[in-house]
C-alpha cells in the first residue's frame, strides 16, 4: 500500500506547488501592451460607484487608445487600506475616505506630499455629508443633532477608532455643538459624551452599523454618510426615512495616484486619466447616481440633494492631523468619553 515511490512523487509535487506559489507579478500592467491592469485601492462605501466608473472608463479608454483595460478593486476600512498600501499593496490609485489616510501613505514616501493640489477641489471629485436614517414616520421626532442626546434615544454609529465614516459623524456632532455653544470646547465635549452614552453598539465599519440598524432593528437613528444612507434606502428601504439635518459636515473623500507604484509599473498615464475621468460630466453623473454630491451641480437632477449648511474639518478641528491627535488617538477626546468615572 505504501510504496516509497508514491511518497517521493507526492513530495516532489508538493515542493513544486510551494515553489511555484511564489508569484512575482509586481511588474504587471504597463504602458504600451494591448492590455493593461491597474489596481484601485478604495474604502468600503465606494464599491457600487467604482463598479460603474470602472466599466465606463474602460470603454472610454479602449475607444481612445485601443488598449483593453482591467481595473481591479480592493475595498476595506480606509485606514486598513492605507496601511496595506504602505506595507506594499501595489495600488496604482487610492480613493480613500479621509485625506489623513493618504497623508500617511505620502509620509511613507509613496506619494508626493503635495498630492492634494494635483487635482481640482482638494483632489476630491465628489463630496458627501453626515445625515440621519430613522424608522418610518420618525417616531422619535429626530430633526437635528440636538435631538440625538434625548434620554432613551438609541443612536447607531460605527466606531470612530476603526471607521473613517464614523470620524466624519463624530466631527459633525462636535462641530454642531461648538457652533451652538459659541466655540466652548468643554460644552462640545459634554455633548459628544452624551451622544455616545446613547450608542449601544459600535460596529467596526459603516456597513456593519447599517446592518445592525436595518436588519437587526436595533436603535432609533443611524448616523451615516448621505450616500450610504441613500443606498440603504434603495437596497433595504421600505421601513426607513432619511432626515437631513440643517447643518452638517462637508466630507471630502480624496483620490490620488500612487507615484512610486505607477512609475515602477509604467501606468501613470492610465492612472491619471482614470482619476481625471471622475471630474468629467460622465464621471460626475455616475457619482451623483450613487448619491455622492457631484462638484458639478449640473450632473445631478435638480432637488436630488437637499441644501445643507456645511462646515469643514478645517473649521471645526483645524484639519485632519489635529483632529486625529485631539480626538481619535490613544487618550484623545473619544477615549475620555469612556474613561472610568465619566
Amino acid at each position: 500500500m505504501h510504496h516509497p515511490p508514491h511518497r517521493a512523487a507526492i513530495a516532489a509535487t508538493l515542493l513544486a506547488v510551494v515553489l511555484g506559489g511564489c508569484d512575482s507579478e509586481g511588474g504587471r500592467g504597463g504602458g504600451n501592451a494591448a492590455s493593461a491592469t491597474v489596481l484601485n485601492v478604495s474604502y468600503d462605501p465606494t464599491r457600487e460607484l467604482y463598479a460603474d466608473v470602472n466599466a465606463a472608463f474602460a470603454a472610454h479608454w479602449k475607444e481612445k487608445t485601443g488598449q483593453s483595460l482591467t481595473i481591479e478593486q480592493s475595498h476595506g476600512g480606509s485606514g486598513k487600506q492605507a496601511r496595506s498600501v504602505i506595507d506594499g499593496l501595489a495600488a496604482d490609485v487610492v480613493t480613500l475616505a479621509l485625506s489623513y489616510d493618504i497623508d500617511q501613505i505620502a509620509k511613507a514616501g509613496l506619494i508626493d506630499p503635495a498630492w492634494q493640489a494635483r487635482l481640482p477641489h482638494n483632489s476630491a471629485p465628489y463630496t458627501s455629508t453626515s445625515v440621519f436614517l430613522v424608522r418610518k414616520g420618525n417616531p422619535r421626532g429626530i430633526r437635528d443633532w440636538g435631538d440625538l442626546v434625548q434620554p432613551g434615544v438609541q443612536v447607531i454609529t460605527p466606531n470612530p477608532r476603526t471607521s473613517g465614516g464614523a470620524r466624519w459623524n463624530y466631527l459633525a456632532a462636535w462641530g454642531w455643538a461648538l457652533e451652538q455653544h459659541g466655540g466652548d470646547e468643554a460644552k462640545a465635549r459634554e455633548f459628544v459624551a452624551a451622544l455616545f452614552k446613547n450608542v449601544p453598539v459600535l460596529d467596526s465599519g459603516a456597513r456593519g452599523s447599517t446592518t445592525t440598524f436595518v436588519e437587526r432593528k436595533i436603535g432609533d437613528v443611524l448616523l451615516a454618510w448621505e450616500n450610504e444612507a441613500r443606498l440603504a434606502l434603495d437596497k433595504l428601504g421600505g421601513e426607513l426615512e432619511l432626515i437631513v439635518p440643517p447643518v452638517s459636515i462637508l466630507a471630502e473623500p480624496p483620490v490620488t495616484v500612487v507615484d512610486k507604484v505607477v512609475d515602477k509599473r509604467a501606468t501613470r498615464a492610465i492612472a491619471t486619466a482614470y482619476l481625471e475621468f471622475l471630474y468629467t460630466p460622465e464621471g460626475q453623473r455616475l457619482a451623483a447616481r450613487h448619491h455622492y454630491r457631484p462638484r458639478d451641480a449640473a450632473a445631478a437632477p435638480a432637488g436630488a440633494f437637499p441644501a445643507v449648511r456645511l462646515f469643514t474639518v478645517d473649521e471645526v478641528a483645524g484639519g485632519w492631523a489635529k483632529a486625529q491627535a485631539a480626538h481619535f488617538d490613544d487618550g484623545g477626546t473619544f477615549d475620555q468619553i469612556y474613561a472610568p468615572g465619566n
Binding site: 506559489g21 511564489c22 508569484d23 512575482s24 507579478e25 509586481g26 506595507d87 506594499g88 499593496l89
Partner: peptide
C-alpha cells in the same frame, strides 16, 4: 524581496 521583485504578502504565498 522588493529588490528581487518577489511578492509574499498581498499574494498567494
Amino acid at each position: 524581496l522588493a529588490a528581487h521583485d518577489l511578492k509574499i504578502i498581498f499574494a498567494l504565498p
